[in-house]
């Protein structure tokens, strides 16, 4: 049993995109704020702080997580994956990210990180989704710029590419 006192900053250790990192948080500090302002991972955005818009979605221990509805204290010791961990290299985008760029699946890009995290998580577990499934998944995200269709297109194309590259790997 661990009890953290209010108004005091406590050390929080997490694995962020595979790297062990640490910061400090009061019990009331939200994971979204901890990621952004303590760990400097500003790619995760805050859009509503009541769990509706989905911009702050990250993956915690394999679970899609609204980081605005999660306390930093809750994830002490957990593995966190954010948009900063998606690209294979600093100068190269992953398959999903490339598909987003090709399809103009983002405009302002503010909501995009959360959408990418949901898709990255989902496609890893559901390699051959149909459009309705992607629409159901992404109904937990709000985007005001794109009208969503290019996002759906990018997701489906990325899924197809990921599936074929996986197939090539297993064939070889």
């Amino acid at each position: 049993m661990t009890r953290l006192k209010s108004d005091v900053r406590h050390p929080i250790h997490v694995s962020l995109n595979g790297e062990p990192v640490a910061g400090e948080a009061e019990p009331r500090t939200l994971l979204s704020d901890f990621l952004r302002h303590q760990l400097g991972a500003t790619g995760t955005h805050v859009g509503c702080e009541h769990g509706v818009c989905g911009a702050c979605t990250v993956v915690v221990d394999g679970m899609l997580t609204r980081s605005c509805l999660t306390l930093a204290a809750q994830v002490d010791g957990c593995e966190i994956k954010t948009v900063e961990g998606l690209a294979p290299a600093a100068d190269r985008l992953g398959v999903l990210q490339q598909a987003f760029r090709r399809h103009h699946a983002l405009q302002c890009g503010f909501c995009t990180a959360g959408i990418l995290m949901s898709l990255d998580h989902y496609l890893a577990r559901n390699p051959a989704p149909i459009e309705a499934e992607i629409r159901d998944l992404l109904s937990g995200h709000l985007c005001r710029c794109t009208g969503y269709t290019p996002i759906i297109q990018a997701a489906l194309e990325a899924a197809a590419q990921l599936a074929s590259s996986k197939k090539e790997t297993s064939d070889a």
């Binding site: 954010t82 998606l86 690209a87 983002l106 890009g109 990180a113």
Partner: peptide, 10 residues
Amino acid sequence: EDAALLSGRG
């Protein structure tokens, strides 16, 4: 614009 926005570097 997109590479930065897609990798959390906006």
